[in-house]
Design a protein around this nucleic acid. Structure first.
Length: 110
RNA sequence: CAAGUUAGCCGAAUGGUCGCUUCAACUCGUUUGAAGAGGAAAGUCCGAGCAUCACAGGGCAAAGGUGCCGGGUAACUCCCGGUGAAGGCGACUUCAAGGAAAGUGCAACAGAAAAAAACCGCCCGCAAGGGUAAGGGUGAAAAGGCGAGGUAAGAGCUCACCGACGACUUGGUGACAAGAAGUAGUGUAAACCCCACCUGAUGCAAGAGAGUUAAGGACUAUGGGCUGCCCGUCCGUCCUUACAAAUCGCUUGAGUAUACAGGCAACUGUAUAUCUAGAUAGAUGACCAUUCAAGACAGAACUCGGCUUACAGACUAAUCUUGCAAU
RNA sequence: GGAGGAAUAUCGAAGUGGUCAUAACGAGGCGGUCUUGAAAACCGUUUGCCUUCACGGGCACGGGGGUUCGAAUCCCUCUUCCUCCG
């Protein structure tokens, strides 16, 4: 996933948490809000998920899955994906299915 | 062969497709090529570099740290080699290991008594009183131990043997060891302390950019500094916000590898070769195939040297140790 | 990434080398007085884990070592939690 698609500042995260809408999945929570700068996405994995190795692995799975879906997603929005504790034990495909489910529920995917 | 001891080393491998970060190249394309986490990257427990703080400059103090000896190192509370003590049959391991005769404090309960001790006992004496640490329960600890002499009763009071300290002599750079005149009121300094040595503060969220900037607020010369006082020196000072989440600091360094030389070793010197992550919501992933012993602990964030803690397993070395068997 | 602090009954907290921590004190639980009933007030009692029929005994101050005759307290180390620095 290239750099232009990344959500960067702490302020942007807080804006989406406060103003955006929320969709819950089993282990993921998706926040999204309308964006005028094109598609941006951020991933949040808290300390409760595990140590730094586990957290990095979960983030990589999320980024890779998001990249594969990039062409099907509505580019008018910013996203924040928050991982739940059980994502530590999930493999690549399980996380991918979960991400698709959440995006469909939000009606932002073709 | 079994059980150990010490030291070192590695910590999945190979290929394919898609993708990420940095750098280089040109035909500038969303091409091609190269490189891309650790032994602990961790804890942040020490020591430095580097940066800023008014030239962070001198003296005295306070506070903190270290504590057998010699060496190594940029430096260290680290490392190496010794000494002593404790543990182990042994190879070997562990140790904040100076001073209690500079002074002060503490030693609960029990006990006559917890430091220069007479309650009971023993002895002298009519008694008053005196002598006495052999015996007595307690306690973590009771005034060196045991035997003989000696005595009114006793006692290192004397003697032999053993233990502690030890002027001096010898050996050693030294800690110390061996011998030894002689000495005799316990423990505690990770209690205060004494002695010797060391330490300015803050940390890359430092700081540069960055200024005689702009705006707002507070305190004022009887003022103000990143411990206190004195001296010296300097200045109005402090806080918040904006330019300003850009860019730099940011990786060539006490660097890495090999060889030779010196040294018991830690380590040092010389020569040659080599460049090996630099991100900034934070780069190593996903899928497929093959192999084996079926993959532990775990993710760089300014950089080094240590310490400590976590760790599946694999391998190597030793004229190493113990036991058994054989020769 | 860096700097600092805390951990003691169910909860909040005192204790900073010594008579079992009387785990003080407060809140809570249980029982009683009062009331038609309750609240409040007052009085008493209980307070972790293991073992025992019981009496009683042992272990416990976040975990593990060390110093000391003796540690919640002093020293080292690990764990968890909290705060601050843009």
């Amino acid at each position: 996933m290239q750099r232009i698609y990344r959500l960067k500042s702490n302020g942007a995260f807080h804006y989406i948490y406060k103003k955006g809408e929320r969709v819950k999945g089993k282990n993921l929570v998706l926040y999204f809000a309308k964006s005028n700068k094109g598609l941006k996405a951020g991933f949040s994995v808290s300390k409760h998920v595990g140590n730094s190795v586990t957290r990095n692995r979960v983030k990589r799975h999320l980024r890779e899955n998001f990249r594969l879906l990039l062409n099907d997603i509505d580019h008018g929005y910013s996203f924040v994906v928050v991982a739940g504790e059980k994502t530590a034990d999930m493999n690549h495909y399980q996380i991918g299915d979960e991400l698709k489910f959440v995006l469909k529920k939000a009606n932002l995917i073709k």
